[in-house]
Design a binder for these strands. Structure first.
Lengths: 148, 148
DNA sequence: AAAAATAATTAGATATATCTAACTAAATTA
DNA sequence: TAATTTAGTTAGATATATCTAATTATTTTT
């Protein structure tokens, strides 16, 4: 009952999804949609972007991001700060709750990592990490050619 | 620049998401929502469930699944077959296009697996698979206790 | 300073995802 | 057979995610 790599990936990715859903349910973030969560993660990554930058980042119209940000503001996940340089521009910041939401993915990866190496010896862990580093290198190297 | 397991997971999961999005865009399935894709995957896994079973599987109301299935039918992704035993019951089947949609995840895992082992020797591959099998066992074993 | 460009908002449209409640048709039970 | 239960649909409500077009406030260019 040895699994091949595809089946292993399947199990890991599927478990990740389930665990992520559980973490969301267990937190006070139950009613965040996937788009909203994505938006929050992007705000985190982009470090307080303007609405226009965010809209570009999410590939949606400025009007759409404006509405979305309104809703996230009502839910106390973000707040807007008007720029001093250009008073037309607003920058989006995460609140405490927003930051918690943004860290869901990171936390998830941490927990999965722990689970994956739970029953391993130190040397097994080391070998696994060396090999996976190699894997990830191939993955990144080939990313560009993936699209076809 | 050796990455730890958490960073590796991060890269793999992130690449998976991007690749999945690309595969969706490149197919004729651009306008499928994530809920619709999830629904189709579930239909595939459950093997022609009734609407009630599907609704339970997705944890939504029967009325909601009815509407959703209507839309998927209009898009030619599924079709309904009235049961001979019980003529109140309809079973949902995937069309050719529906099956294509359902296999997006599987295809994705196959491609990622290929990429991950692209630059490895056979023996490296073997070791990786043995170790990851161990990982997956821990993962499954601990799944129950994850929720807290 | 007047004209043009830019950032964000608002209005109005369409599609989706949900819900509860009411309804129809069919099957089961008493 | 009459009453009850069950499967699915329909109607009507609310929330989200999008869009384009029009509007407002500011900034930049001429």
């Amino acid at each position: 009952m040895q699994k091949n790599l595809e089946q292993i990936l399947n199990t890991i990715l599927h478990s990740s999804e389930i665990l992520e859903e559980k973490m969301k349910q267990d937190s006070d973030l139950k009613d965040l949609t996937s788009r909203q969560l994505y938006c929050i993660e992007l705000i985190n990554k982009m470090e307080n972007p303007s609405l226009t930058e965010l809209a570009d980042g999410m590939s949606i119209a400025k009007a759409s991001i404006s509405v979305m940000i309104d809703r996230l503001e009502k839910k106390k996940l973000i707040y807007k700060v008007t720029s001093d340089n250009d008073r037309r521009t607003a920058h989006v910041h995460l609140t405490e709750i927003g930051m918690k939401a943004a860290s869901i993915h990171t936390d998830l990866h941490k927990r999965i990592s722990e689970l994956l190496t739970k029953d391993m010896t130190e040397s097994e862990k080391e070998i696994l990490i060396v090999l996976l580093n190699k894997s990830v290198k191939s993955l990144i190297k080939n990313k560009m050619q993936i699209s076809n």
